[in-house]
Design a protein around this nucleic acid. Structure first.
Lengths: 351, 351
DNA sequence: AAAGACTATGCAAAGGTTTGCATTTTCCTA
DNA sequence: TAGGAAAATGCAAACCTTTGCATAGTCTTT
């Protein structure tokens, strides 16, 4: 009786043939006699032979692992993306390794080093809100590790990218607020370094300009982070202005809910006194009262596409070029935290 | 110029010594001359030598990977546990591989096979709500892979376990409802197979019995899944009973919120007409109006402890025995969806 | 000066699989 | 039946590191 697991050598010995023949038999090599193949396969099955992937990894210099770097997973946004990624990668020969950067550039850099060390075959990454320099991603590429950036863009980095048209989402949202009669529209933006923050801000600005509404600096605040608590202070600043806004377009749903809280505390009626629109369409946003109008993003699809792209890169060796850039369209979801609008029937509405 | 990455052999050749000497120098083997060590270390640094973990894995027959199997990650509950796990494992030599079973026994079994194939060193698992048979976990153990079960128990499986005292949490919650004057307390339970469901149900039953309140079958409903939508129908059944309950203790926050919705739709006042208490303390539960009373669980700690236990097992080879069973105490969090209670001041309250 | 002790280093195997090339076996044809 | 082509299989290297044992070299002691 052998101790450990069954190897190709055990099978070879038992059948008095060479290990290489066994290997070929198991992969249906055309040069082999049918009988040999059958004998090998039968014995392999009988002994419950399991190929040793560790040996294969060494031989092929690859780990069959794809690293996924995200800032966090406690929000529905990233956990849904990961679910999409997992559902695609799960059917392939690859495994995914999820790494949390905690929105810290430093941790992100450490993760990259770790992934290099274990020789991941590819990396999917949504950079932290602190990341301004992308050289660590380029290091991956120099080591022939394809990188796919998702959701948060890395301007200047040449890589496959799967993004959301944040600009359009923001523009739509603010345009709707204007149509619904709001004129004093404030914005609660995210950390300034982030591409998503910038694009949503630009969408906000352009929608105002497009409607000939002057931009007021005091109506624009930026939050330090993405949690409910991060939004409270900035929301309070907006709602303590002398000339009170009649609408707030927030960077995400959590922040929008912070604004709702402050508004409620100040006895403002939503949406009569003030409309509030978020971004992300987190599942619980529809359960609030008033339910939150927001911008929906195809998170699951985003994850799936990112995964498909990296699988494609991995199968399709060769120099990395012709980078793809896919941009998903978000959709405005109108609920009860924003006023009705005369032309509402003409808008695409998702409830 | 060499093509690939620098190996121990490259260093050996350059210094005209044996690879084994290089290996020993890098691990500070006592038999080596200081000068040799220094020379090796200097060159290793200069060439930016990175040990090839793939080779090590093969040699040591281990993958340095810990599998983490969870039903899903889109809820705050599991994503927070994973964050705790990650924060502990991240500092070790191990990597974690997160696998989603989607509450499907079949998928869970497939995952186990995959983890065996890649030769994980250990597994952390919270079984699906369908899992009644634990032989697949025993298969892991037979292969000398330690298993740590967390949150959801596997009765009869001998393994390390990190659980929450669901019984006590439920008992406390229902006891409070009784103290606050409720007498017709209904329960929205989870899928019946789950240990957590059973224990919470038992806590509910015992709290009633303890107060001499007769148990009414029609006041007990079970939801098929954990999402908001899964709770709607069962909640409706409860609230359409002729003898309306004056309180609902729900399996989790999502279900509690389903109940809140149905109650509101029926113009019931919360908590005046009906008190509602959830379980889990999801972050958004405090933002609802009325804010949700619920039972808080130390999710992050639960993840960290599970991770520590498996690391300990991995360092501490030898036969698996003396399994640990750790049980965390949950805490009742009183908010606005339940009535005040005369003796409230005496309770430990977390807001 | 020789034996013994100790220090420093090298050799080679092991871990399991794949693959180009070499070799053997089989079969057909002249 | 020899020759050669074609079919089937084997050999050995490669992937990189670790480690028990062997060996070479140095020093000490009698």
């Amino acid at each position: 009786m052998k101790k450990g697991r069954v190897t190709i050598i055990d099978i070879a010995r038992e059948l008095s043939i060479a290990p290489s023949t066994v290997s070929r038999a198991l992969k249906d090599h055309p040069a082999l006699k049918k009988e040999t193949k059958d004998a090998v396969r039968a014995l392999a099955k009988k002994l419950d032979y399991q190929p040793n992937l560790l040996a294969l990894n060494l031989l092929q210099k690859k780990s069959n692992t794809i690293g996924v770097i995200v800032p966090e997973i406690t929000s529905h946004f990233f956990s849904a993306i990961i679910t999409g990624i997992q559902d695609v990668i799960g059917d392939s020969e690859y495994n995914i390794m999820i790494c949390l950067s905690n929105e810290s550039y430093e941790e992100e850099a450490v993760i990259i080093k770790k992934l290099l060390k274990i020789q991941v075959d590819g990396v999917l990454v949504s950079p932290t809100s602190e990341t301004k320099n992308f050289d660590h991603f380029r290091t991956l590429q120099k080591n022939d590790i394809p990188v796919v950036v998702f959701d948060r863009d890395c301007p200047g980095l040449e890589a496959d990218k799967v993004l959301v048209d944040d600009y359009a989402g923001a523009f739509q949202a603010v345009e709707y607020l204007i149509k619904s009669g709001c004129t004093k529209i404030a914005h609660l933006g995210g950390p300034l370094n982030l591409s998503t923050t910038k694009h949503r801000l630009q969408g906000y600005l352009d929608a105002l300009e497009n409607a000939d509404i002057p931009i007021r600096k005091e109506y624009i605040e930026h939050v330090p982070g993405f949690s409910h608590d991060d939004g409270l202070k900035p929301a309070e600043r907006l709602l303590k202005l002398e000339d009170l806004p009649d609408a707030i377009f927030a960077m995400n749903d959590n922040i929008a809910i912070s604004a709702m809280h402050i508004a409620r505390k100040m006895a403002l009626k939503i949406p009569d006194d003030i409309s509030i629109v978020g971004f992300d369409d987190e599942p619980h946003s529809s359960y609030f009262r008033p339910s939150l109008s927001t911008v929906w993003q195809p998170v699951y699809s985003l994850g799936m596409l990112s995964a498909r792209i990296i699988l494609h890169r991995l199968n399709d060796k060769g120099p990395q070029k012709n980078f793809r850039q896919e941009v998903f369209k978000p959709e405005l979801v109108l609920r009860a935290s924003s006023r009705e609008c005369a032309s509402r029937k003409n808008d695409k509405v998702k409830l």
